[in-house]
Design a protein around this nucleic acid. Structure first.
Lengths: 128, 128
DNA sequence: CAGGATCCAGCTAGATACTG
DNA sequence: CAGTATCTAGCTGGATCCTG
């Protein structure tokens, strides 16, 4: 952790086009709920209210919007069973599943460096 | 790409605590400018207006705010040379440099799957 | 059950003007 | 040069009510 070898993995690829792509994905993934939905669907298909209960604090409106956006981008599949009452199952597409890997890498970094960030914040805030 | 091996890298770690950490980092990194600043500083230290020119479209206010936030979290170092005119150099800390690796992984995913996302969007939007 | 439709508070980020 | 201060449009997201 915090390895400072100067073999730069990123410098070579720092082209405007690639950065545009990174920013698009970060915007897609960096919102409040998208990744929580994706992570919840990791275990398998879930229904709407099942997701609602699984994700603490999400409103029905935000769950709907988030699912629609993920579906639009081909990350989530929506399967409607026209019964009474209606049944809708959400699941990750292959694309959606493949996204979990880089996001998990970010998660590992987050866990490993959380303490560094917290202490840096405390230090910064201390010097008023 | 799009490998669907069911060895789940993420399921095992899908604990609330880890997800909280991921969300914090995504919020930190998922905003409009932070990663552009980090990527720009990859090449080496830069001064304020140098960064301003390097990052297309960023306002002076947003650059200030983004740099302060990154400094607070210990990702960026701010070095002031009290001269006239003043000189301030910004550089990545070790923590900041270490972040580039997982973000680059996300960048690779973005580049590899951009076309899938674009066509998924087109398909979704086509059905009224 | 699975949403759609409204309304609204709060935050984000841009524009502009000014300063040590 | 490197900011701070102010004002504001627009977006994000929550609460609430309604429906097939």
């Amino acid at each position: 952790m915090l390895s400072d070898r100067h073999t730069d993995v990123t410098d070579a690829e720092h082209s405007p086009i690639r950065c545009q792509a990174v920013n698009d994905i970060l915007a897609r993934v960096g919102d409040k709920w998208s990744m929580q939905v994706v992570m919840s669907l990791s275990a398998g298909p879930m229904r709407f209210n099942e997701l609602r209960r699984a994700i603490d604090g999400i409103s029905q409106r935000m769950l709907t919007r988030t699912l629609r956006a993920l579906e639009r981008d081909g990350l989530v599949d929506r399967e409607v069973t026209p019964s009474v009452p209606p049944r809708v199952d959400y699941s990750l597409t292959m694309l959606g599943r493949s996204l979990r890997e880089p996001v998990a890498a970010l998660g590992v970094w987050a866990m490993e460096n959380r303490s560094h960030i917290d202490s840096a914040r405390a230090r910064f805030d201390a010097e008023e």
